[in-house]
Write a protein that binds this DNA or RNA. Structure first.
Length: 484
RNA sequence: CGGGGCGUGGCUCAGCCUGGUAGAGCACUCGGUUCGGGACCGAGGGGUCGGUGGUUCAAAUCCACUCGCCCCGACCA
């Protein structure tokens, strides 16, 4: 009798269990996505986790370039005086910046801060670079790390240092800046839903949740498996706030000197956490094929003279798929048994597994196993590549549908505040409710239900006409949720 | 930053109350047999008990401080 004892994750801690948080941390660690380091709140992203991030980067970078954006790089350090220039901005970020007061063995005359975001280091440069309306728009993006001294951290979701892209654009008119802000918002939505199979709600943030220094902030919000919302990306219309603070001016078509209109927007490594929490299950990670480092893992069954029969076939299969652009890996390690590999690749979220053994060779077939569905399907060798391509697309679509359905069953349009409060208990989800637009109601709702106003989608018909909290006329129907 | 919990080989944990200087399972290494759902047998390697200071003849064990992690709040991509 064998009595293996698996470690915590797969047996006891599941996304459905009370301890979702523990499940998440287990997946991150056991799937080798990230690890803690000596520095509080700072994680090392391990190769497998980084590979996921790279795939996200590539997919997003392509989209950004396709819409005319170019990449550049700005420095890590910001003279503290610069940070102080935009007063709302400094108010928002000062409490979370890291300071550098010494360089080598010298005290710095002016301390530096490590960028929490780059608006203020970019501001003076844009002021230098932009002279004429002909220089506009400026559509620059950078891939970088930033540091925010957070009180509570969690791998990927909130770390002291994190990786992201931040776009910083400058425009001739308010209208263009607004268009850009919304263009990026929908680009983010499209990206999240297509590549990450993660349905998101796009909308505008309330005044209190706005980016420090922005005129308007928009976000995409996902709903993860424990019923909490995750802000997955933000796009800010900065108006002329930063242009005025940094003197970013140009001479217009009408010969007058004007301030530019700027935007900024970003998504971060938090998305990796979002994917884990959106799709993961009792066996671990479930990766959408588009961002899976190994879309297909081939596990040969070593029996009899498998080295002469199974292995060459498996290699041919791998090479054939790789030639078609499929990210495929042949797990021919001999120190692990097939069963061990099955469990391991499930834990690591590989979307599709191919089992190939002597029996399959005889029948000229393989066994396909979908990570999302789990069942084993025999598939003929002939036409296998096409079959696999189709299956990967199917898995991608199925994951999106599953996540969408989850969100829909966990989204409630409430009629009363009582209903709102009761939904927020346990594993809540989104609540859609009428809102009068006052910060007081928003704040009270937060205090009493822990739910925050995530955003106000703009492409919906207004249904409620009364604020769920105070009963006054509603200005719209925001989505509320407990959030990460 | 407030409340609570926890730090013992890579992981999960026992030992701590009632001080006498470290154990288990898994993982790892080597050899062999296995391999279609986390294999088995045999032989091995590895920790000074988060850190610092104190009490004591003696500290993983008691005390103080400190760092880190986790949970619940407040703050946040």
């Amino acid at each position: 009798m064998k009595e293996q004892k698996k470690e915590a994750l797969v047996t006891e801690i599941t996304p459905q269990s009370e301890d979702f948080s523990r499940w998440y941390l287990d997946v991150v660690r056991r799937a080798e996505l990230a690890d803690y380091t000596e520095v509080k709140g700072c994680m090392a992203i391990r190769p497998y986790g980084y590979a996921i991030w790279e795939l996200m980067q590539q997919a997003l970078d392509r989209r950004l370039k396709a819409t005319g954006h170019v990449n550049a790089y700005f420095p890590l350090f910001i003279p503290s005086g610069l940070l102080m220039k935009e007063k709302e901005h400094v108010k928002g970020f000062a409490p979370q910046v890291a300071w550098v007061t010494r360089g080598g063995d010298e005290e710095l005359a002016e301390p530096l801060v490590v960028r929490p975001t780059s608006e203020v280091i970019i501001g003076p440069l844009y002021a230098k670079w932009i002279k004429s309306w002909r220089d506009l728009p400026v559509l620059i993006n950078q891939w970088a790390n930033v540091v925010r001294w957070e009180k509570v951290t969690r791998p990927f979701l909130r770390t002291t240092e994190f990786l992201w892209q931040e776009g910083h654009t400058a425009h001739e008119t308010a209208e263009e800046a607004q268009e850009e802000t919304l263009r990026i918002l929908s680009l983010y939505k499209e990206f999240a839903e297509t590549e990450l199979a993660m349905p998101v709600v796009a909308g505008e943030k309330s005044e209190s949740e706005k980016f420090a220094g922005a005129a308007r902030t928009y976000s995409i919000e996902a709903l993860v498996r424990d019923g909490r919302a995750l802000q997955a990306g933000t796009s800010h219309n900065l108006g002329q706030n930063f242009a005025k603070a940094f003197g970013i001016q140009f001479q217009g078509r009408d010969k007058t000197l004007q301030h530019v209109w700027t935007t900024s927007w970003g998504v971060s490594t938090r998305l990796v956490g979002g994917v884990i929490m959106t799709h993961g299950d009792d066996s671990g990670l479930v990766l959408p094929p588009r961002v899976a480092p190994h879309q297909v893992v081939i596990v040969p069954i070593p029996r009899g003279n498998w080295r002469e029969t199974v292995l060459p076939t498996a290699r041919r299969l791998r090479d054939g798929l790789a030639a078609l652009g499929v990210r495929v890996m042949l797990d021919d390690r001999e120190e692990y048994t097939p069963g061990w590999k099955f469990a391991e690749w499930e834990l690591r979220g590989a979307p599709l597994r191919i089992e190939i053994g002597p029996r399959d060779i005889e029948r000229s077939q393989v066994l396909l196993v979908r990570r999302d569905a789990g069942e084993k399907l025999p598939a003929a060798m002939e036409g296998l590549a096409e079959r696999i391509g189709a299956l990967l697309a199917e898995i991608q679509a199925a994951l999106f549908q599953r996540a969408l359905q989850f969100r829909e069953t966990h989204t409630t349009r409430v009629g009363s505040y009582e209903e709102f409060k009761s939904i927020m208990e346990g594993r809540p989800g989104f609540v859609i409710a009428g809102w009068c637009g006052s910060e007081e109601c928003e704040a009270q709702i937060k205090t009493e239900t822990q739910a925050t106003l995530r955003n106000m989608p703009f492409d919906v018909d207004r249904v409620s006409d009364a604020c769920v909290k105070c009963g006054r006329p509603a200005v719209g129907e925001p989505w509320f949720a407990k959030a990460y």
